Computed example of a mutant assay.
Amino acid sequence: MSDGSSNHSISVPYFDSLPQKFSEGDVDALLAFGRHLHWGYWSDPTKADGSVADFAIAAENLSRLVTDVAEIQDGLSILDVGCGFGGTIASLNERFCSMHLVGININTEQLLRAETTVQALPNNHIKFVDADACQLPFSDDYFDVVLAVESIFAFSSREYFFREARRILRPGGRLTICDFIPIQAFYRTWKLIEKATKTLVVRTYGSRSVNFCPLFEYKKLASATGFELVKTENITRNTLPTYPVVNSLMRREGDEETYRATRGLERLSRRGLLQYMILSFQISPS
């Protein structure tokens, strides 16, 4: 059990410990993850300089890219599922007007920070809600776009989430996500080692299940839930500079296991076995 001393960050999974790190004045943790809780995107990865400040810019760039793929424009109603500290909502708030923006999360500490730090600009409306991705508390045909920015792997069921997204989207609505996607040949191997790696992953990313889904399964899932896959962008190469920065931050904690979990993701990504992709689905014509 943690006694609240400097060992706190070792006994608590890294990402779950971030609010505590912020309150303790951890400048690097705040810069890296105070707005966004996801990887970064570099249009030219060779120009990444390995700094936390450079990573923070890249994390904002990833949010912008996902929302661009979703074809977001002024005047839409947007739901961000697994909104973290509200970074994607904040980015949309700053870029667009006449927006109805809702972020949901099941992590109370993250929601409290989002509510405190993200304030609606004139003509925009923002709300943060404590809700489960697989039981969305919204009426049918409520949103124009549903986003899940590097969060869907932690949901209890992709199928339930897709069905709920389909229900709350208006005709012609779009579901856009980014996810770590194993190539088909590696997926079989991953299923064999998944249980063995679960403890290591939980120590880093928290008690959420981290489930991978290959592209062919996403296509089947879309068909079964009333969507069609309309855009795919493989941005693995553009996200790779994330790893040296995140690995360095985690290794400072003095816990080799948390470091090993992200190093494992890095090896799989650099070998092409695990791809970082943006997928955009549209409601299928009736």
Rank of each mutant, 00 (worst) to 15 (best):
G4M: 01
L229P: 06
G84L: 03
D179Y: 00
N93Q: 11
T117M: 14
I152G: 12
I104Q: 00
A133P: 12
D44G: 10
T204Y: 00
Y14K: 04
F128E: 05
V246T: 02
L221W: 04
E109V: 06
F186Y: 03
A114P: 01
T204W: 01
N107H: 14
F162Q: 02
I235W: 00
E228H: 09
S5T: 08
K195Y: 07
Y276K: 04
T258W: 08
R208D: 11
R271Y: 13
Y259V: 08
I181R: 00
G25E: 08
R174E: 13
E217P: 06
G87T: 05
R35D: 13
C83T: 14
Y160S: 13
N238Y: 01
H8N: 14
L192D: 07
A29G: 08
P241V: 02
L175H: 03
K191C: 13
D255C: 15
F216M: 10
D49V: 03
S207E: 14
G87P: 11
A32T: 07
S17A: 12
V146C: 08
A196F: 09
A32C: 12
C134T: 08
E256Q: 13
V230G: 10
G82V: 05
G82C: 12
R270L: 03
I278D: 00
E253A: 10
D74C: 11
L175A: 11
S6Q: 06
N93Y: 10
E233Q: 14
N7D: 15
L192H: 07
G34S: 07
F143S: 05
A185F: 08
L240Q: 00
C83G: 12
E256S: 15
I126S: 10
G172F: 08
A222P: 08
E71Q: 15
E150S: 09
L279G: 04
R208N: 14
S51A: 12
G272Q: 01
W39H: 15
E266Q: 15
F128Y: 07
S156N: 07
D132P: 09
D44T: 04
F216Q: 11
V27R: 12
I193F: 13
R203E: 15
N123Y: 11
I106S: 13
D179S: 04
M1Q: 08
M1A: 13
L112S: 05
K231D: 15
L31W: 06
G87K: 01
L229M: 13
G254P: 14
P244C: 05
F55Q: 01
N234S: 05
V27G: 12
L192Q: 11
M277A: 06
E194M: 09
F155L: 05
L18M: 10
V102T: 06
G86L: 10
E257C: 10
R163F: 11
T197Y: 14
Q73A: 14
T225G: 03
Y187K: 09
S43R: 11
G75P: 09
S139Y: 12
L101T: 04
A185C: 10
E164I: 03
V69I: 15
E164T: 04
D144Y: 01
C178L: 01
S77E: 10
G226I: 02
F33Q: 10
L37A: 07
R267Q: 14
G172E: 09
L268D: 00
T236R: 00
R174Y: 10
F55M: 04
N247I: 04
D74A: 14
